[in-house]
Design a protein around this nucleic acid. Structure first.
Length: 595
RNA sequence: GCCUUCUUAGCUCAAUUGGCAGAGCAACUGAUUUGUAAUCAGUAGGUUGUUGGUUCGAUUCCGAUAGAAGGCACCA
């Protein structure tokens, strides 16, 4: 395929490349605008770029359109595309451009801000201010779909007016389009809010927007993760603390959170003293550090806390477990000497690698370095720690990127981006160096020369928010959890209650005595019905017990996602499931095909 | 917070132009005793999110309010 670029040159592009899809999507957004211009002549156009797997166009309609209208617009787009109009690039002077777009205040605003060559792309009688690149004619646009309508601020600024944004997606083949639409469907089916309801994991109430309730099933999942979290922290020589949920305003003034975030903090006045519910755990952790005097020999101190924090998020930001107002950070604060930083960082990378691989989550790391301006702390420490972080990432062998200048004002950081089973990326873990709080709180240790020294402070969270992480896991596994996480691990189905219930009860007691989460379905329903319920709940092992099994003292199990029926002795089954739980075995393949 | 849309039984959804609020699943009762994804019959279940208005009459039309969805803005 051929692509015309901003400078007018025409280049050849491979249709398999992501760049070519970007061009196609961008051209499709123009086609959308062309269709809208014909259907709604008084609509004004804003921005219309390509995005990942699609495109959008921001439009100021005189009267709002509804989802239904997309069908009509899509039809018009196909009609226009079938004309195979040439997309013609033209370069204009600023004054020419201002004349062409004199009726569109949005484009005029953009033109005034452009300092380079101004180009327009024209198809039929639709003209758009655009850098390109674009395909050569609209006939190549065949496999697309308009997806949704949303509001979006002009130029991404909440002070501006909101325009109507139409999202769509465009592909080179019908098959690619179908695959993408299927993926969207699959993501909808796996929505953690839906599965959370179906599997009774958590609930939300209008009486506490953004404050999730954990139901018994979800609590099992959560405690399994927290239990693993504890083991992992023991292994890596952490100490664990719990700091108060509410602390006085003065503390937040010292930490600096009050001036920055007081609008997002829950506050209260008690006995004429102002308090705030903690939005972060760090100040509490620092108070614990300062509770005793530390020798250089005590360092590093690795202090972990599953800390419940509250943040008053904007109502429109709330989203299931992904964005809540009360959540638990798997937080830790590490106080160390400068000479210990190398070891600490590389140990942390091992720690993270273990935590993520248990859940079958691949990831990459992003290093954010010192901002150009407004940073605090010694530039030598900045440079040294950035070098240490970079080297540790390189040594880990993991994919990693650098975001120059994207660090916080108080230190460089590593972010861990997790890839789930549906090719989505989630930022979860973070490791941040902090040169600010130790200073503000005057943290120190006594060095070998008897002098007070400032420790280096690392903030780190691996899963991020437990709530959000569980939301991610629900979707990652499609609700089909591996045995170690599953709320119910084994479901027992006696074929006939009259003859097999006693044997089923015996196995139930035996498994339960070994702390296996087992349920016994002795309902008066047919086996097929109970089997279906067991599969709907995505229970890892469903066991059928009938004459055969009772007489031979065996059991027949079926794994979730498989039709295979396997008969084994009771002992063999216990060994099998105990191994699987102990090793935290993955079932991503099962999860991928889970409905 | 902003734009658009939505809110009907525990869940998923119906209800012609404003005219007696219905179904499936789940629950409960009874029958059935079942060999791998839904056995049959019956019963009960609702101030249509809340609130104010228009109307002889409102689930339906209008306003307010709460919550939710898709986005935007925000995300220490």
């Amino acid at each position: 395929m051929k692509v015309q670029q901003h400078d007018g040159s025409i280049v050849e592009m491979d249709k398999k490349s992501p760049e070519s899809l970007e061009v196609l999507n961008h051209s499709t957004s123009h086609l959308l605008a062309e269709a809208i211009q014909q259907l709604y002549p008084d609509a004004l156009f804003g921005f219309g770029p390509a995005i990942e797997n699609g495109f959008y166009y921001d439009i100021d309609f005189k009267s709002p359109i509804v989802e239904q209208d997309l069908i009509k617009i899509e039809k018009k787009m196909h009609e226009l595309a079938s004309k195979d109009e040439k997309i013609i690039r033209q370069s204009l002077t600023k004054s020419q451009a201002l004349e062409v777009f004199k009726d569109n205040p949005y484009k005029l605003e953009l033109i005034r801000d452009i300092n380079e060559d101004i180009t327009i792309f024209t198809q039929g009688n639709f003209i758009d201010l655009c850098r390109g690149p674009h395909i050569l004619s609209t006939g190549q646009i065949k496999h697309f779909k308009l997806l949704s309508i949303a509001g979006a601020y002009w130029r991404g600024d909440s002070k501006n007016k909101q325009l109507c944004r139409i999202y769509g997606t465009s592909w080179w083949s019908e098959e690619d389009l179908k695959n993408y639409l299927n993926l969207i469907e699959e993501r909808k089916k796996r929505d953690h809010r839906l599965l959370g309801k179906q599997l009774d994991l958590f609930m939300l109430s209008e009486y506490g927007p953004g404050f999730p309730f954990w139901l018994p099933n979800g609590m099992i999942l959560r405690e399994a993760i927290e239990e693993y979290w504890k083991q992992q922290h023991f292994k890596y020589h952490y100490v664990v603390v719990k700091t108060p949920i509410m602390l006085s305003k003065e503390l937040w003034e010292i930490s600096g959170h009050w001036s920055h975030y007081k609008d997002n903090m829950y506050t209260t006045k008690i006995d004429d003293r102002e308090f705030a519910i903690k939005p972060m755990n760090c100040p509490g952790g620092i108070l614990v550090y300062k509770n005793s005097l530390h020798s250089y020999k005590d360092l590093p101190i690795r202090m972990a806390e599953l800390g419940l924090v509250h943040r008053h998020e904007a109502s429109g930001a709330l989203n299931g477990l992904f964005r809540v107002r009360a959540f638990t950070q798997d937080d830790a604060h590490i106080f160390c000497r400068e000479d210990q930083l190398v070891d600490e960082i590389s140990t942390l990378l091992n720690f993270y690698e273990e935590m993520y691989s248990v859940f079958g989550l691949d990831y990459y790391i992003v290093l954010s370095t010192r901002p150009e301006e407004g940073y605090i702390g010694d530039i030598k420490i900045w440079n040294k720690s950035e070098a240490i972080l970079k080297e540790a990432c390189e040594k880990s062998g993991k994919e990693f990127k650098i975001n120059p200048g994207d660090g916080a004002f108080y230190g460089p950081k590593l972010d861990f981006k997790l890839k789930d089973s549906m090719n989505r990326v989630w930022q979860c873990g973070t490791i941040q160096l902090d040169m600010n709080l130790p200073e503000r709180f005057d943290c120190f240790y006594i060095d070998s020369d008897g002098e007070k020294k400032r420790p280096i402070m690392l903030h780190r969270a691996c899963l991020g928010s437990i709530e959000r992480f569980i939301g991610i896991l629900i979707e990652h596994y499609g609700g089909a959890f591996p045995a170690w996480l599953a709320p119910v691990q084994v479901n027992l189905l006696p074929v006939n209650n009259a003859y097999h219930l006693a044997y089923a009860q015996e196995i139930y007691d035996l498994l339960r005595a070994r702390h296996i989460r087992v349920s016994l379905d002795d309902g008066n329903d047919k086996l097929g019905y109970r089997m279906r319920n067991s599969q709907v709940k995505k229970i890892p092992f469903t066991i059928v017990l009938g004459d055969h099994e009772r007489d031979d003292r065996t059991l027949t199990y079926r794994r979730f996602g498989s039709n295979e029926q396997i008969t084994v002795s009771i002992d063999d089954f216990v060994t099998l499931i105990e191994e699987e739980i102990k090793e935290k075995k993955q079932n991503i393949e099962v999860a991928k095909s889970a409905q």
